[in-house]
Every structure is written in structure tokens, then in C-alpha cells.
Design a protein around this nucleic acid. Structure first.
Length: 292
DNA sequence: GACGGCTCCCGCCACT
DNA sequence: AGAGTGGCGGGAGCCG
């Protein structure tokens, strides 16, 4: 079983750590073993007025398949050498791409010139090291990890369980205007859910706008404010996620997958698939078939 | 891959 | 005045 170990450093952001716990630590799926460790086992203060209990010391990091480092205050604090050694964190990002909360990207770039800071994405996957932006982007990153380890279907199942809207691609802009859409009446959430149910049908932006009760212009504006992307790009991303799930293990032809996902034709699916996944549908299916 | 035809979507601006 | 809205033009991008 794949072991994920979260490292709770003093004044950990409990919400960040909880995302990992919800995604990797739930008993419903038996894909991951999830442990929480700290430099010294025991109570670890959080930034939000309560402490959490870390049952393990950092020795468990050695046997981790994935190490999770949730946010903590103060990031300027000097960590003990033994913690840094365990993480091999010093210089680990040098020469790599990385991101962080949009308020801190400039600081990160200034303090660590060797890191190629990507200021406007949700998360960055550099293979061995993955980084994400502010809180909610951690969900996208964790689901991305599940997808990498076990496929889109597994990621979809967990996303459904924790009731988060379907994933967003890492390259998507961080939400600068409205981090969390509130205001139930004004939110386009229900229109997005409606669109997901009708993904297989041809959908136009005009239809989505009509469903939401806005003019096309206002709909487009509000859509970007809430999701950070445009209606069509969002549709394409959702259709591609759907296609990934169908390709893994399924027997449907690429043409049939395309139609079932709402792509008008197989070439259309191939084009968007290549851009988002950097692979072809057939190669993607083969990779998952061989892995299983 | 190339190429039409069409949709999308963003800046601009008028209107409330 | 200032914020929110929506129509329009046209370049970008999607689709067959």
C-alpha cells in the first residue's frame, strides 16, 4: 500500500493537513496508508487555536512513498537540521518550477532565486516535488496525486466522496478576485452541475448563460470570477477528465469515448487530450492497462 | 495538416 | 460619482 506521511511542523495550517487526511486517510478506500508525524511526537499547535496529536516522529518519513508538507507559520523559522535532512528540503527545488499562495510568490522568488516560481497556477508537478497555491488548490493537488497513482476513476471517486467540484488543471489561474464563491443565489455552481450532467450533449455558452439567467456577457464575466477560467475552456477540461476515466480500463473505441464525453469527433478529443495530458488517448489507455 | 465557417470571449462603451 | 450590466466589434480559437 502506498504510504503518505504528513509532516506537521509547529503552527501547522490545520486545513492544509486536513485536505491530505480527507483525500488519503479515509477508510472507505484502501489505496493509501496515511500517517501524521512531527519533529517530536505529541501535540502540535495549529494556527487556528487548537492542537493536533502527531503519533509519529520523523523517522517514519524514511518509509514514506509521498511526503506531505502542509503550510505552517512562520515559514522564515529555521527548522532543525535533522528535519531538513529528513526532507532533504534544502535546495530540493533549485532549478525546478514551483508555486505558492499568490501573496507569497514574490517573496519566494526573492529568497530563492534558483526556483522558477510560477506565480499564477494552482499547482506545479515537477515529478519528485509538487507544490500548490493557497488552501483550496491543495485539494486539486492531492487529487492530482491520486490520479497519478491510481488513475482518474480513483480520483473521481474521492472527489465525489468529499463533495468537491471536479478537478481543475494545474495550469489554471489562481483565483485572484473571489477565492471562495459564496452567495448561494448568485453562484453559478448549479449551472456547472447542470452542465456536468449534460456533458455528453453539445452545449453552447449561450445555453449555459440562459440556464444561469444571465446575459452571455455577464455570464462570462461571473464565470471567470468564480472559476478562474472561461466557460468553453472549463467544458473542455471537464470533458477531458471524463475521457481519462473512460479510457482507463474501458473497452470503448476512441471515437465512442469522444462522443460519450461530448467531443464532436475523435480528432477533437485527440487535440484537447494532447494539450492537457501531453499524450494520446490510445497511449494513455495502454499505460493504464499495462500498469494494472 | 490545411482551410473555411463558426463560436468564443474580451476590450470598449453606453445605460441603469 | 461608482458599480453592475449587456450589446457590439473583431481577433483568437474551435470544429468539421
Amino acid at each position: 500500500m502506498h504510504r503518505v506521511v504528513a509532516l506537521a511542523l509547529p503552527n501547522v495550517v490545520a486545513f492544509d493537513l486536513s485536505i491530505g487526511a480527507q483525500v488519503f486517510g479515509h477508510r472507505e478506500e484502501e489505496m493509501y496508508e496515511f500517517l501524521v508525524c512531527a519533529p517530536a511526537p505529541g501535540a502540535v499547535p495549529t494556527t487556528t487555536g487548537f492542537a493536533l496529536l502527531a503519533e509519529h516522529g520523523i523517522d517514519v518519513l524514511e518509509r514514506a512513498g509521498t511526503v506531505l508538507v502542509p503550510g505552517f507559520e512562520d515559514p522564515r523559522a529555521q527548522l532543525p537540521d535533522r528535519v531538513l535532512d529528513a526532507l532533504r528540503a534544502a535546495g530540493v527545488l533549485d532549478g525546478r518550477r514551483a508555486t505558492t499562495h499568490w501573496r507569497a510568490t514574490a517573496l519566494l522568488a526573492r529568497r530563492f532565486p534558483a526556483i522558477r516560481v510560477e506565480p499564477d497556477v494552482l499547482y506545479v508537478d515537477e515529478g519528485r516535488v509538487l507544490t500548490s497555491a493557497g488552501v483550496a488548490a491543495g485539494i486539486d493537488l492531492c487529487l492530482h496525486i491520486v490520479r497519478t497513482d491510481f488513475g482518474q476513476r480513483a480520483a473521481n471517486a474521492i472527489a465525489r466522496r468529499i463533495v468537491v467540484a471536479p478537478q481543475r488543471e494545474g495550469g489554471q489561474a489562481q483565483f485572484l478576485e473571489r477565492p471562495v464563491p459564496t452567495e448561494p443565489g448568485g453562484s453559478l455552481e448549479s449551472t456547472r452541475l447542470w452542465a456536468l450532467e449534460h456533458l455528453a450533449e453539445p452545449l453552447t455558452v449561450a445555453e449555459l448563460a440562459r440556464h444561469a439567467g444571465y446575459s452571455e456577457r455577464t455570464f462570462a464575466r461571473r464565470f471567470r470570477a468564480e472559476t478562474g477560467t472561461t466557460p468553453l475552456q472549463w467544458l473542455i477540461a471537464q470533458r477531458t477528465l471524463n475521457a481519462r476515466g473512460l479510457l482507463e480500463g474501458g473497452e470503448l473505441s476512441v471515437e465512442a469515448v469522444a462522443r460519450q464525453c461530448g467531443f464532436g469527433s475523435a480528432p477533437s478529443l485527440r487535440q484537447h487530450f494532447r494539450r492537457a495530458v501531453r499524450s494520446t488517448p490510445t497511449a494513455y489507455r495502454a499505460a493504464w492497462t499495462d500498469a494494472a
